[in-house]
Amino acid sequence: MSRIDPGIGAAGEPLPVGGLPRRRAGASLLVGAVLVGLVVAAALVSFVWTPYDPTLVDASSRLQTMSARHLFGTDKFGRDVFSQILVGARTTLFVGIVAVGVAGVIAVPLGIVAAMAPRWFAEPLMRLLDLLLAFPALLLAIMFSAVYGGSTLVAMIAIGIASIPSFVRVVRSGSLQVLSTEYVLAARAAGRRPVAIGWRHVLPNVSSLVIVQASVAFAIAILAEAALSFLGYGTPPPVPSWGRMLQESQEMLFTAPRLAVFPGVAIAVAVLGFNLLGDGLRDRYDPKLEDRR
Protein backbone atom coordinates (compact mmCIF):
# COMPACT_ATOMS: atom_id res chain seq x y z
CA MET A 1 0.00 0.00 0.00
CA SER A 2 1.64 3.16 -1.08
CA ARG A 3 0.89 6.23 0.92
CA ILE A 4 -0.39 8.99 -1.29
CA ASP A 5 1.61 12.08 -0.89
CA PRO A 6 -0.51 14.89 0.34
CA GLY A 7 0.56 18.14 -1.19
CA ILE A 8 -1.04 21.35 -0.20
CA GLY A 9 -2.72 23.76 -2.50
CA ALA A 10 -3.49 27.39 -2.27
CA ALA A 11 -6.91 27.32 -0.79
CA GLY A 12 -5.88 24.24 1.10
CA GLU A 13 -6.41 22.00 -1.82
CA PRO A 14 -4.27 18.94 -1.87
CA LEU A 15 -2.69 18.41 -5.18
CA PRO A 16 -4.63 16.04 -7.29
CA VAL A 17 -2.89 12.78 -7.78
CA GLY A 18 -4.19 9.65 -9.35
CA GLY A 19 -4.06 9.02 -13.00
CA LEU A 20 -6.83 9.21 -15.46
CA PRO A 21 -7.87 5.97 -17.10
CA ARG A 22 -5.06 4.63 -19.20
CA ARG A 23 -7.15 4.56 -22.29
CA ARG A 24 -7.60 8.27 -22.02
CA ALA A 25 -4.04 8.99 -21.06
CA GLY A 26 -3.27 10.19 -24.54
CA ALA A 27 -6.40 12.32 -24.59
CA SER A 28 -5.70 14.17 -21.35
CA LEU A 29 -2.11 14.73 -22.38
CA LEU A 30 -3.32 16.14 -25.67
CA VAL A 31 -6.05 18.34 -24.20
CA GLY A 32 -3.72 19.49 -21.45
CA ALA A 33 -0.98 20.34 -23.92
CA VAL A 34 -3.40 22.26 -26.12
CA LEU A 35 -4.75 24.32 -23.22
CA VAL A 36 -1.30 25.05 -21.83
CA GLY A 37 -0.16 25.84 -25.36
CA LEU A 38 -2.97 28.35 -25.61
CA VAL A 39 -1.78 30.14 -22.50
CA VAL A 40 1.84 30.10 -23.63
CA ALA A 41 0.86 31.35 -27.08
CA ALA A 42 -1.14 34.20 -25.57
CA ALA A 43 1.83 35.19 -23.45
CA LEU A 44 4.25 35.03 -26.38
CA VAL A 45 1.96 37.00 -28.65
CA SER A 46 1.59 39.67 -25.98
CA PHE A 47 5.32 40.38 -26.17
CA VAL A 48 5.12 41.43 -29.79
CA TRP A 49 1.53 42.52 -30.19
CA THR A 50 -1.56 43.54 -28.25
CA PRO A 51 -4.47 45.41 -29.84
CA TYR A 52 -4.12 48.20 -27.27
CA ASP A 53 -1.80 49.19 -24.46
CA PRO A 54 -3.31 47.11 -21.64
CA THR A 55 -2.60 49.72 -18.96
CA LEU A 56 -3.62 52.83 -20.89
CA VAL A 57 -6.52 54.50 -19.13
CA ASP A 58 -9.04 56.06 -21.48
CA ALA A 59 -12.11 57.56 -19.89
CA SER A 60 -13.84 58.02 -23.23
CA SER A 61 -13.99 54.32 -24.00
CA ARG A 62 -14.86 52.88 -20.63
CA LEU A 63 -17.15 49.90 -20.07
CA GLN A 64 -17.76 49.15 -23.72
CA THR A 65 -19.32 45.86 -24.67
CA MET A 66 -17.74 43.33 -26.96
CA SER A 67 -17.20 44.65 -30.46
CA ALA A 68 -14.81 44.37 -33.38
CA ARG A 69 -12.74 47.21 -31.93
CA HIS A 70 -12.63 45.71 -28.46
CA LEU A 71 -12.98 41.95 -28.80
CA PHE A 72 -13.75 41.39 -25.10
CA GLY A 73 -14.94 44.94 -24.41
CA THR A 74 -13.29 47.38 -22.01
CA ASP A 75 -13.18 47.71 -18.22
CA LYS A 76 -14.08 50.69 -16.05
CA PHE A 77 -10.75 52.33 -16.84
CA GLY A 78 -11.42 52.02 -20.56
CA ARG A 79 -8.65 49.45 -20.90
CA ASP A 80 -9.00 46.76 -23.53
CA VAL A 81 -9.90 43.47 -21.82
CA PHE A 82 -8.53 41.29 -24.61
CA SER A 83 -5.13 42.96 -24.37
CA GLN A 84 -5.19 42.50 -20.62
CA ILE A 85 -6.02 38.80 -20.96
CA LEU A 86 -3.09 38.38 -23.34
CA VAL A 87 -0.61 40.13 -21.07
CA GLY A 88 -2.22 38.46 -18.06
CA ALA A 89 -1.11 35.12 -19.47
CA ARG A 90 2.45 36.31 -18.92
CA THR A 91 1.71 36.99 -15.28
CA THR A 92 0.11 33.58 -14.95
CA LEU A 93 3.14 31.83 -16.41
CA PHE A 94 5.47 33.96 -14.30
CA VAL A 95 3.50 32.99 -11.21
CA GLY A 96 3.82 29.30 -11.98
CA ILE A 97 7.46 29.44 -12.99
CA VAL A 98 8.50 31.27 -9.84
CA ALA A 99 6.55 29.01 -7.49
CA VAL A 100 7.59 25.80 -9.23
CA GLY A 101 11.14 27.06 -9.69
CA VAL A 102 11.58 27.86 -6.00
CA ALA A 103 10.09 24.55 -4.96
CA GLY A 104 12.01 22.54 -7.57
CA VAL A 105 15.43 24.09 -7.07
CA ILE A 106 15.30 23.51 -3.33
CA ALA A 107 13.28 20.34 -3.18
CA VAL A 108 14.88 18.16 -5.86
CA PRO A 109 18.39 18.09 -4.37
CA LEU A 110 16.89 17.86 -0.89
CA GLY A 111 14.75 14.90 -1.89
CA ILE A 112 17.70 13.04 -3.42
CA VAL A 113 19.87 13.79 -0.41
CA ALA A 114 17.10 12.65 1.91
CA ALA A 115 16.99 9.37 0.04
CA MET A 116 20.75 8.80 -0.01
CA ALA A 117 21.73 10.26 3.36
CA PRO A 118 22.04 8.16 6.48
CA ARG A 119 19.04 7.90 8.71
CA TRP A 120 20.35 10.24 11.40
CA PHE A 121 20.35 13.00 8.82
CA ALA A 122 17.35 12.11 6.72
CA GLU A 123 14.95 11.56 9.58
CA PRO A 124 15.26 15.03 11.19
CA LEU A 125 15.19 16.58 7.72
CA MET A 126 11.89 14.95 6.91
CA ARG A 127 10.51 15.96 10.30
CA LEU A 128 11.50 19.54 9.64
CA LEU A 129 9.67 19.40 6.33
CA ASP A 130 6.62 17.98 8.08
CA LEU A 131 6.75 21.04 10.26
CA LEU A 132 6.80 23.28 7.21
CA LEU A 133 3.75 21.40 6.01
CA ALA A 134 1.97 22.79 9.05
CA PHE A 135 2.21 26.30 7.57
CA PRO A 136 -0.43 26.38 4.86
CA ALA A 137 0.53 28.08 1.60
CA LEU A 138 -2.04 30.84 1.90
CA LEU A 139 -0.84 31.65 5.41
CA LEU A 140 2.77 31.85 4.30
CA ALA A 141 1.88 34.04 1.36
CA ILE A 142 -0.07 36.50 3.49
CA MET A 143 2.76 36.71 6.02
CA PHE A 144 5.40 37.14 3.35
CA SER A 145 3.39 39.89 1.68
CA ALA A 146 3.09 41.68 5.01
CA VAL A 147 6.84 41.50 5.59
CA TYR A 148 8.25 42.13 2.16
CA GLY A 149 5.46 44.15 0.60
CA GLY A 150 2.80 42.82 -1.72
CA SER A 151 4.17 41.70 -5.04
CA THR A 152 3.67 38.75 -7.31
CA LEU A 153 7.22 37.60 -6.78
CA VAL A 154 7.02 37.62 -2.98
CA ALA A 155 3.68 35.85 -2.88
CA MET A 156 4.83 33.18 -5.30
CA ILE A 157 8.09 32.54 -3.48
CA ALA A 158 5.93 31.87 -0.44
CA ILE A 159 3.72 29.50 -2.42
CA GLY A 160 6.87 27.81 -3.73
CA ILE A 161 8.28 27.36 -0.25
CA ALA A 162 4.99 25.96 0.96
CA SER A 163 5.07 23.31 -1.75
CA ILE A 164 8.63 22.16 -0.93
CA PRO A 165 7.60 19.38 1.48
CA SER A 166 5.35 17.58 -0.98
CA PHE A 167 7.98 17.97 -3.71
CA VAL A 168 10.66 16.50 -1.47
CA ARG A 169 8.51 13.53 -0.62
CA VAL A 170 7.82 12.73 -4.25
CA VAL A 171 11.49 13.05 -5.19
CA ARG A 172 12.61 11.06 -2.17
CA SER A 173 10.29 8.13 -2.75
CA GLY A 174 11.23 8.11 -6.42
CA SER A 175 14.92 8.21 -5.53
CA LEU A 176 14.54 5.36 -3.06
CA GLN A 177 13.10 3.24 -5.86
CA VAL A 178 15.93 4.13 -8.19
CA LEU A 179 18.52 3.46 -5.49
CA SER A 180 17.26 -0.07 -5.04
CA THR A 181 17.67 -0.91 -8.71
CA GLU A 182 20.46 -3.23 -9.74
CA TYR A 183 22.44 -0.80 -11.83
CA VAL A 184 22.73 1.62 -8.92
CA LEU A 185 23.79 -1.19 -6.65
CA ALA A 186 26.35 -2.12 -9.29
CA ALA A 187 27.58 1.47 -9.48
CA ARG A 188 27.93 1.56 -5.73
CA ALA A 189 29.81 -1.69 -5.74
CA ALA A 190 32.11 -0.19 -8.37
CA GLY A 191 32.99 2.49 -5.85
CA ARG A 192 31.22 5.42 -7.51
CA ARG A 193 30.95 8.39 -5.19
CA PRO A 194 27.47 9.27 -3.86
CA VAL A 195 27.44 12.65 -5.61
CA ALA A 196 28.12 10.98 -8.92
CA ILE A 197 25.43 8.40 -8.32
CA GLY A 198 22.95 11.08 -7.39
CA TRP A 199 23.81 13.16 -10.45
CA ARG A 200 24.28 10.43 -13.04
CA HIS A 201 21.72 7.85 -12.02
CA VAL A 202 19.11 9.19 -9.62
CA LEU A 203 18.38 12.62 -11.05
CA PRO A 204 17.69 11.52 -14.62
CA ASN A 205 15.43 8.80 -13.38
CA VAL A 206 13.32 10.96 -11.14
CA SER A 207 13.06 13.79 -13.66
CA SER A 208 9.78 12.46 -15.02
CA LEU A 209 8.32 12.48 -11.51
CA VAL A 210 9.54 16.03 -11.07
CA ILE A 211 7.92 17.13 -14.30
CA VAL A 212 4.60 15.64 -13.26
CA GLN A 213 4.80 17.25 -9.85
CA ALA A 214 5.84 20.57 -11.38
CA SER A 215 2.85 20.57 -13.68
CA VAL A 216 0.45 20.04 -10.80
CA ALA A 217 2.24 22.60 -8.63
CA PHE A 218 1.94 25.05 -11.52
CA ALA A 219 -1.83 24.71 -11.47
CA ILE A 220 -1.91 25.23 -7.71
CA ALA A 221 0.19 28.38 -7.98
CA ILE A 222 -2.23 29.84 -10.51
CA LEU A 223 -5.16 29.21 -8.18
CA ALA A 224 -3.17 30.65 -5.31
CA GLU A 225 -2.46 33.85 -7.18
CA ALA A 226 -6.16 34.23 -7.92
CA ALA A 227 -7.09 33.70 -4.28
CA LEU A 228 -4.41 36.13 -3.09
CA SER A 229 -5.44 38.75 -5.62
CA PHE A 230 -8.97 38.40 -4.33
CA LEU A 231 -7.75 39.15 -0.82
CA GLY A 232 -5.60 42.05 -2.05
CA TYR A 233 -2.28 40.28 -1.52
CA GLY A 234 -1.64 39.20 -5.09
CA THR A 235 -0.36 40.98 -8.15
CA PRO A 236 -0.46 44.73 -7.55
CA PRO A 237 -1.90 47.01 -10.24
CA PRO A 238 -1.42 48.02 -12.93
CA VAL A 239 0.31 44.80 -14.09
CA PRO A 240 -2.52 42.85 -15.73
CA SER A 241 -3.36 39.72 -13.80
CA TRP A 242 -6.34 37.42 -14.28
CA GLY A 243 -6.80 37.10 -10.55
CA ARG A 244 -7.00 40.84 -10.03
CA MET A 245 -9.21 41.33 -13.08
CA LEU A 246 -11.64 38.90 -11.49
CA GLN A 247 -11.49 40.78 -8.24
CA GLU A 248 -11.95 44.17 -9.92
CA SER A 249 -14.91 42.89 -11.92
CA GLN A 250 -16.92 42.18 -8.79
CA GLU A 251 -18.50 45.58 -8.33
CA MET A 252 -19.80 45.36 -11.88
CA LEU A 253 -20.98 41.77 -11.70
CA PHE A 254 -24.54 42.72 -12.56
CA THR A 255 -23.90 45.58 -14.92
CA ALA A 256 -20.99 44.03 -16.84
CA PRO A 257 -20.71 40.30 -16.07
CA ARG A 258 -18.39 39.77 -19.02
CA LEU A 259 -15.62 41.39 -17.00
CA ALA A 260 -15.76 38.40 -14.64
CA VAL A 261 -16.33 35.79 -17.33
CA PHE A 262 -13.14 36.30 -19.35
CA PRO A 263 -10.57 36.16 -16.55
CA GLY A 264 -12.59 33.42 -14.81
CA VAL A 265 -12.52 31.24 -17.90
CA ALA A 266 -8.86 32.05 -18.50
CA ILE A 267 -7.91 30.90 -15.00
CA ALA A 268 -9.95 27.72 -15.34
CA VAL A 269 -8.38 26.97 -18.72
CA ALA A 270 -4.85 27.39 -17.39
CA VAL A 271 -5.45 25.32 -14.26
CA LEU A 272 -7.27 22.63 -16.19
CA GLY A 273 -4.50 22.61 -18.77
CA PHE A 274 -1.70 22.09 -16.28
CA ASN A 275 -3.64 19.51 -14.29
CA LEU A 276 -4.46 17.48 -17.40
CA LEU A 277 -0.89 17.80 -18.61
CA GLY A 278 0.30 16.47 -15.27
CA ASP A 279 -2.14 13.58 -15.41
CA GLY A 280 -1.21 12.74 -18.94
CA LEU A 281 2.51 12.80 -18.19
CA ARG A 282 2.02 10.69 -15.11
CA ASP A 283 0.20 8.06 -17.09
CA ARG A 284 3.04 8.02 -19.56
CA TYR A 285 5.85 7.85 -17.06
CA ASP A 286 4.44 6.18 -13.99
CA PRO A 287 6.40 2.93 -13.75
CA LYS A 288 3.63 1.34 -11.74
CA LEU A 289 1.22 1.71 -14.61
CA GLU A 290 3.88 0.87 -17.16
CA ASP A 291 4.24 -2.65 -15.78
CA ARG A 292 0.67 -3.42 -16.50
CA ARG A 293 0.43 -2.05 -19.94
Binding site: T55, V57, F77, G149, P236, P237
Partner: peptide
Protein backbone atom coordinates in the same frame (compact mmCIF):
# COMPACT_ATOMS: atom_id res chain seq x y z
CA UNK B 1 -7.20 56.29 -8.88
CA UNK B 2 -3.53 55.33 -8.67
CA UNK B 3 -3.79 53.48 -11.95
CA UNK B 4 -5.39 56.48 -13.63
CA UNK B 5 -2.80 58.91 -12.25
CA UNK B 6 0.03 56.68 -13.43
CA UNK B 7 -1.45 56.41 -16.90
CA UNK B 8 -2.06 60.18 -17.08
CA UNK B 9 1.44 61.06 -15.90
CA UNK B 10 3.04 58.64 -18.33
CA UNK B 11 1.14 60.35 -21.14
CA UNK B 12 2.94 63.54 -20.17
CA UNK B 13 6.33 61.86 -20.22
CA UNK B 14 6.79 61.05 -16.54
CA UNK B 15 8.17 57.71 -15.41
CA UNK B 16 6.04 56.36 -12.59
CA UNK B 17 6.38 53.24 -10.46
CA UNK B 18 3.11 52.34 -8.75
CA UNK B 19 3.74 50.80 -5.37
CA UNK B 20 0.94 49.42 -3.23
CA UNK B 21 1.50 49.52 0.51
CA UNK B 22 -0.71 47.62 2.89
CA UNK B 23 -2.97 49.95 4.82
CA UNK B 24 -2.74 50.95 7.58
CA UNK B 25 0.50 49.47 8.90
CA UNK B 26 2.93 49.53 5.98
Amino acid sequence: CGQVVKSDLEQAGFKVALDQLEFPAA
